[in-house]
């Protein structure tokens, strides 16, 4: 599966590539604007891991723009944030899960497999 990782931290992107890169094709973006561009350029992206606090365009804005475009790619938010209002906003915008950093690597692999499988099953 091709996974888009949107995070302004290069070290976090590198860590996720290290954790998921053996089993998946990882594409990186540094903010919401690059994330939207990445989705436009890679039609086969099956899952998005999305940070919230980023310059230029944050993760919630990117998620809401995706939904305004009726883009159905599953999105897992991976963030240091945990405010209930933000979680509700993400839920309304159709995010599949909210993960508060740091997430254990085994758990991240399991969730990516779970949501990736679920979406691939739904697409059949």
């Amino acid at each position: 599966m091709k996974i888009l990782v949107v995070d302004d931290s290069s070290v976090v992107r590198k860590e996720i590539r290290h954790v998921l890169g053996h089993a998946h094709d990882v594409v990186e973006a540094r903010d919401g604007i690059e994330g939207l561009q990445g989705l436009a350029e890679h039609a086969d992206i099956g899952l998005v891991l999305l940070d919230i606090n980023m310059p230029r365009m944050n993760g919630i804005e990117m998620l809401e723009r995706l939904r305004a475009q009726n883009h159905g790619v599953p999105v897992l938010l991976l963030t240091t944030e945990g405010h209930p209002d933000l979680i509700l906003r993400a839920r309304k915008a159709g995010a599949k899960a909210w993960l508060v950093k740091p997430v254990p690597h085994d758990e991240l692999r399991r969730l990516v497999d779970e949501f990736g499988r679920r979406e691939m099953g739904a697409a059949r």
Binding site: G82, P84, I87, K96, A97, V100, K101, E107
Partner: peptide, 13 residues
């Protein structure tokens, strides 16, 4: 006060 999600928590939406 509303409770924040704790570190390491996974919330299925």
């Amino acid at each position: 006060e509303p409770r924040y999600a704790a570190q390491g928590v996974v919330i299925r939406l």
